[in-house]
Design a protein around this nucleic acid. Structure first.
Length: 216
DNA sequence: TGGTAGATTGGC
DNA sequence: CCAATCTACCAG
């Protein structure tokens, strides 16, 4: 399937394996690199993610227990958790981890593959490769909103779906501290839980002081 | 019941 | 550097 800018899908799309997501958030995060996400007839390839654990991760929305907003983080792995950031931007997560434990992988950046050429995608002054760069822009590019919160990404009938093709996760992902956390997260600021496909354009800049940037 | 900070982004 | 704008959480 050719993209608007020369990028392509490698081999047939098949649904992402739920089992890959039922492991701990860090393993699930690594597994999601180079996976594909579709919504509204658009398709992107995930190139930057962050892992969030439930109860022991001060940066997690689920750290303080279940609330109306974070309820989906407690759902079965493979569901979509969408929250509103700063009252404006939607951010998409893939729920992960063993049943009964809250966990999620924040999708921070993706590469356009197909369907992003429409005028409705705010192509205005952002280059095509930046359309889905950043968690807020990723959702805007795909048309994901809180209305999609709680859907099963592995359900063949779902509006948002998660796919795998023949491009597997990188053997060595770039890895460093998570972006955007408040200082009160303490130690967790430096946990190397952000993962990036090496060489991917338009991913978040590492936070100064948290920039390990070493393949792990 | 009001104040504030936040897994962000774009504009001045 | 700051505003936009909604939710969760905490102080009083």
């Amino acid at each position: 399937m050719p993209g608007t800018d020369g990028r392509v899908v490698v081999g047939p799309l098949r649904p992402f394996c739920r089992r890959e997501l039922q492991r701990d958030p860090v393993s699930a995060a690594r597994a999601l690199l180079n996976a594909l996400l579709s919504c509204s007839g658009r398709l992107v390839r995930i190139v930057e993610v962050e892992a969030y654990e439930g109860s022991k991760d001060p940066a997690s929305h689920a750290f303080g227990g279940r609330t109306p907003r974070n309820a989906t983080m407690f759902a079965e792995a493979g569901h979509l958790y969408v929250y509103l950031s700063y009252g404006i931007h939607h951010c998409a997560n893939v729920v992960c981890g063993p049943a009964g434990e809250a966990g999620a992988v924040l999708l921070r950046a993706a590469t356009p593959v197909a369907g992003l050429e429409g005028a409705d995608v705010a192509a205005g002054r952002l280059g095509a490769d930046r359309l889905a760069s950043g968690p807020g822009r990723l959702c805007r590019a795909l048309g994901i909103t809180r209305a999609h919160d709680g859907i099963d990404l592995l359900d063949p009938g779902a509006a948002v779906r998660l796919w795998r093709d023949d491009l597997v996760p990188p053997r060595r992902a770039l890895c460093d501290g998570r972006v955007g956390l408040s200082e009160r997260c303490g130690d967790a600021l430096y946990w190397p839980w952000r993962f990036v496909v090496p060489g991917a354009a338009a991913v978040s800049r590492p936070v100064p002081g948290r920039r390990a940037r070493r393949p792990v």
